[in-house]
């Protein structure tokens, strides 16, 4: 039960709803998504294109991941969804599993399908209900980047997060639910983030100098590990194919 909730999310803004289990986080997300109507009050200005990522993706359906995403894309009005599905699957490393039946996917892979279906049409408002549940470490790292890109494009993101991980994202508003009431704790202007880069060895000195000149603090320089190199090759491949 929520009462006396007044909140606004402007273009380019993200908010994370924090609070204990049962505080009403999912209720607020459902109101924002248009899945629930308030008994009193109004939800206004909801964008036409909304993406919704559920806490648990419903994998008990007779589709392969590819067919499911194709259907969902067409339901959202995307005439030729194959390139978009390929792009997002590549990014979240779901491509090898696209022709696997949904019930045969692991929980984390099924959750990736849930993420992809919400981003097929580049939503003006992306709503994520506990987006980290079941995701592998690399995909968990990808979620903040996705959120940052959506915000950079002037769109909005609303996240529920009972672990409070999203509160660390730069510029994100924190909405805390206390006894059914929403407390807007604003943004943490002093929040800092760590950006990891992979650069060619002979460009390290120049990159560090450029970053320092831009007012950024460079922590350290280290040799790229296997995961870094995979990420580098993934990027090179996607740039080569586009």
């Amino acid at each position: 039960m929520l009462r006396g909730v007044t909140a606004q999310l402007n273009p380019g803004e993200a908010a994370t709803i924090v609070g204990p289990n049962g505080a009403g986080k999912s209720t607020l997300l459902n109101l924002a998504a248009g899945l629930l109507r308030p008994t009193h009050g109004l939800v206004t200005g909801r964008p036409a294109r909304v993406g919704f990522v559920p806490e648990r993706f419903p994998a008990d359906q007779p589709f392969t991941a590819r067919r499911y995403l194709t259907f969902m894309a067409k339901v959202q009005g995307l005439a030729d969804p194959a390139p978009r599905i390929a792009e997002l699957s590549d990014r979240l490393r779901l491509t090898p599993l696209l022709d696997t039946l949904l019930p045969e996917l692991s929980k984390g892979s099924a959750q990736k399908v849930g993420l992809i279906q919400a981003m097929l049409i580049e939503p003006e408002l992306l709503i994520l209900d506990e987006p980290w549940e079941g995701l592998d470490a690399r995909t968990r790292d990808e979620v903040p980047l996705i959120i940052a890109e959506i915000l950079a494009a002037g769109r909005r993101v609303l996240v529920s997060d009972h672990f409070g991980q999203t509160a660390e994202l730069p510029g994100i508003r924190v909405w805390e639910l206390v006894n059914g009431e929403l407390v807007d704790e604003g943004t943490d202007d002093e929040a800092k983030c760590v950006v990891e880069l992979v650069v060619k060895a002979d460009e390290v000195a120049k990159t560090v100098a450029d970053l320092r000149e831009g007012g950024h603090h460079v922590n350290r320089v280290r040799a790229a590990d296997r995961e870094d190199l995979e990420s580098w090759h993934d990027m090179a491949r996607s740039e080569g194919s586009s």
Binding site: L35, V50, F52, P58, Q61, M72, Q76, G114, Q117
Partner: peptide, 16 residues
């Protein structure tokens, strides 16, 4: 046939 959560996804996806 459709799971309840999928029905909610569908309502959001199709716009109402």
């Amino acid at each position: 046939v459709e799971p309840d959560v999928q029905r909610r996804l569908t309502v959001v996806a199709i716009g109402g």
